[in-house]
Design a protein around this nucleic acid. Structure first.
Lengths: 244, 244
DNA sequence: CGGTGCCTTGAGTGCGCTCAATTAAAGTGG
DNA sequence: CCACTTTAATTGAGCGCACTCAAGGCACCG
């Protein structure tokens, strides 16, 4: 049992606990998992499409993303990940990675041997439940992204991503004030939105000129969360925060 | 135990078995679930966004889809479902529905009381595994859709959807020849692709004029699967068919 | 101090949209 | 079975959102 506040899996476990109940036993099993922490540089790969990973990993600090590419090399970021997120739970049951996982910024990743995690999952129904819940919420976010990319114009689409990011950071207790750092290049933002970086630049300028946010280097401050939420058409229901 | 060939859950169970191993015990538990079959008309709702369903359902015949809408009423179809698909496994763990499930065509749906299914899942690890696998494959499809809608042009995007549909039908043994019925309106196709029905009509015409497919009412025949696959940039890896 | 990466801005283009009219097909009821 | 209604598909004309290409600015870093 390892409840030390610096346990590398603590953030993930806290995230699990916010969503559902873990027994004392589940909790200990998770926190006792053998875990190796590695510091990684921006854009280093954690999983490559085509791999069959023998580990699962959890983001401890920094930001990561998952991406797919067309055969023509067009990139689409399909997920942004913040500290506490499990980065590849799918490999517990799926063999071959269908997409790549990469660091967005410098940060730390916790690697857990697949076998050990599988054991814990199969012997602790509370953990199994938490893992299922996490993957289902993730799937819900994918659906919202399909809607976002498919049906919202560039301005709303960008605003939606900003709202989602802020909301998730707050859900996890990683942001408090009206602003947050967004250490993402506009090109990455564009790849997450199905846009070009040029257009993202223009849209950010527009949002700023509308008084919805203020930029300072890569820090973003929301000037009017309600107005931004409105034009983003952001409804956090799909994040399933506490709907048991 | 109910192995009769007309068991309404047979198709789903067969789909599970193709992906992984179910023990005799798992199998019997699934096939013995109380299940109520209902015939439904096109566009009737199975789940509405905001509901908290107390059942899980499986498509027995016909086609269904899942959709989300922007506050402005723009519709995005996020998933097409074929016979044997579970339509709302997410509600096993998530309370409030974040999207709607609707019939595309006339068809039959099997309703399973949530409680009973939860019991089977928690007492049969093979079933739990199969359910996890199914939801993870589903999530993988969502990711591919984000890529499809975000980064492919209209022609490839449409071709990709056609390829995916054909491939999945074949995976499940529901199509054999070079063609298949596609009982979907062009407007629904458009809503699945983030396009307008007008443009879908034009793209279908182009694909036909390129000799890639032939249309006859709503039947589509592939004239050149390889060429269509190429311009669709379709790689079935993301469907995780038999990669254990 | 030059190099490099990222962002910004302008000018011009084009893919997919809107609006609208027409045709074709599928139901529906007498 | 045929007249009528409704729904779906096609086609044209024109527009606009987001793209491409390219130049220039700014910040960070060796």
């Amino acid at each position: 049992m390892d409840h030390r506040p610096d346990n590398p899996l603590l953030l993930m476990v806290q995230a699990f606990q916010k969503q559902g109940s873990l027994s004392e036993d589940d909790l200990n099993a998770l926190l006792s998992l053998p875990a190796k922490v590695r510091k990684l540089e921006p854009s280093s790969y954690i999983v490559r499409e085509g791999d069959t990973p023998n580990f699962c990993c959890v983001l401890k600090s920094g930001l990561a993303y998952r991406q797919k590419q067309t055969s023509g090399g067009q990139r689409q970021i399909v997920s942004l990940n913040i500290p506490g997120d499990a980065l590849d739970l799918q490999h517990l049951f799926l063999g071959i990675a269908d997409h790549s996982v990469q660091m967005m910024t410098r940060g730390e990743v916790v690697f857990i041997p697949m076998r050990e995690l599988q054991d814990v999952v199969s012997h602790h129904s509370g953990v199994a439940r938490a893992v299922s819940l996490a993957t289902l919420v993730e799937a819900s976010v994918f659906r919202e992204w399909v809607l976002n990319v498919g049906r919202r114009d560039a301005r709303s689409r960008l605003a939606h991503l900003l709202c989602e990011f802020a909301f998730r950071m707050r859900m996890r207790g990683l942001a408090s004030g009206p602003g947050y750092a967004l250490p993402i290049t506009q090109e990455q933002l564009a790849d997450a939105l199905g846009l070009t970086s040029v257009h993202v630049s223009r849209m950010l300028k527009i949002l700023e000129s509308e008084g919805l946010l203020v930029r300072n280097k890569r820090n973003i401050t929301f000037e009017s969360w309600e107005n931004l939420r409105e034009i983003a058409d952001f409804n956090p229901r799909y994040l399933h925060f506490l709907d048991s």
